[in-house]
Design a protein around this nucleic acid. Sequence first.
DNA 1: GTGAAAGCGCTAACAA
DNA 2: TTGTTAGCGCTTTCAC
Lengths: 330, 330
Amino acid sequence: MVKPTVTSSDVARVANVSQSAVSRTFTHGASVSAETRQRVMVAADELGYRPNALARSLISGKSGIVGVLVAYLDNQFYPTILERLSRSLQEKGFRVLMFMTDTGDQDVVVNDMLQYQVEGVVMASAHLSSQLARRCADNGIPVVLFNRYIAASPASSVTSDNLEGGRLVGNLLADKGYQRIAYIAGYEDSSTNRDREAGFTKGLAERGVVCHARTVGAYTAEGAARATRELFALREPPDAIFVANDHMAFAVMDVVRHELGLSIPGDIAIVGYDDVPQASWKAYDLTTVEQPSVAMVDATVEILLGQIEEKSVTRRAAVLPARLVERGTA
Amino acid sequence: MVKPTVTSSDVARVANVSQSAVSRTFTHGASVSAETRQRVMVAADELGYRPNALARSLISGKSGIVGVLVAYLDNQFYPTILERLSRSLQEKGFRVLMFMTDTGDQDVVVNDMLQYQVEGVVMASAHLSSQLARRCADNGIPVVLFNRYIAASPASSVTSDNLEGGRLVGNLLADKGYQRIAYIAGYEDSSTNRDREAGFTKGLAERGVVCHARTVGAYTAEGAARATRELFALREPPDAIFVANDHMAFAVMDVVRHELGLSIPGDIAIVGYDDVPQASWKAYDLTTVEQPSVAMVDATVEILLGQIEEKSVTRRAAVLPARLVERGTA
DNA sequence: GTGAAAGCGCTAACAA
DNA sequence: TTGTTAGCGCTTTCAC
């Protein structure tokens, strides 16, 4: 039993009012008398009327849609963010058009978002060509890069203070007296990796220590496992490792414990970054740096909706404080 | 530098063709001469033209949007699914309008989806009033319930064979000779919980065993921790626990090991359900039942797009095979 | 193959 | 407050 589409004109006919009266009844902040509204609502209920948001968007020029671009969800940091972001945007009256993206199809995806008239875009994709954001900005659509930034870009960004977070880890490991402190890098081209590493190096330097060794995990579990094995194949293996994010740190810990048979933190200290939910699970109990996900999402939404409202696409960069969370792995 | 919106008429003017010619050029499978197409494309490129998908949807009656409803993303099963589902739908030319939902606002959310003219809906929300699916079906919009079903509903469903999966676990634990086998339930009202438990009970019964004890974790980590403590407060604590999903099983294992100081599987066996990525992480190495997420997503997409295409909303139920994955916790 | 014209369902002036 | 009117940007007959 499929009802034929019922339009505002149908409702108008039944309610014995003009079509615009129906429109007004369903438009927030329009002036309708109580009586008209009443009649319209009755008719609408009877017919099962539901305004067509697409038609509305077409004429109002506001789609009420925000595009969200994500690269992968296996790193638990992103589902957490996606959930919060989604809820927040919904509360504010926006819908989320979500896209998963690989390196290859970003152009297609951004094009799609623009065709659907998104009013704003959040990009939480690791690999991200800098022109994409520009394409959006050129169309007057504000973009917020989440957990990453691109220097020469009109896109706003929200990050935590990765430089400071890295520094805190550098200080911590040096202060604890570790002798051979290593770093497992994330994806080399990412701003998070650059900043965390730079901060880390600085934090060590402040204590007169230099990084003992460095391998690359590229933000994947498999990469991290490989990077760990490389470190332990060295003549002088590390006694502490700073891993560029928690997602990799778990893989590192698994290799260290179950493949190399070492104990944490007895034989080797591990520190991660992000403070994803699993970091506090007792099986890992990972010392890490918290990214303030709630504050980061709040900032994202604030910047985005602010720019949507005032129709200005200016670059804003929010950098939120990072906090060391000391648990049992260092 | 915000470009004013450029429409097909603008392109037509520059290309010296009619507006319909422009439309045809951008409509798949319309007839345009090579020359016209060429001229249109040049003009479109020059102006930075991009068809307005909303206007297109309005007239064609096809939005190309699928609504996806999710309850929470902290159970890693769902991010995994969401990612696959999203990618698959994108490949097939659909966009995903994603909604997070709590128990309270489902009506609002479904209403919103319908207003945005979604062509189909996937619901992966645990708590789900049965009338929601009906509302969609009444509007001729196919609905697929993912990982759950509602008997008296026009909505299709895709699940794994939870009954069989539970049975396998019952058999396994009985065969391994455990004496006091307990069950930690998920959310009582969910079809997954009902089926897994029923299968489990049957699997035990086949070996002449009855379930020793039962508590409820309600599919949350905290609930599972509580449920575990309850079990171990019994005069006769269990020597094996079947936990209704992996997400809870991790919490159970953490309590068992780090709070109760017991070893797994030495002192107690644990079996989960889902086979989420973390189940294979060495820190847990969880024996569990695999839900074939790829096949489940494929079935979901197939059912949904099938019904969208043939405009028929008939109930289909796909039940995919579950498989026992034996690891180190039993 | 092409252009003219109609209209998808709605909002937003404008007059009344 | 209300109805009338004019589109939003597009697809799709329909003649040519």
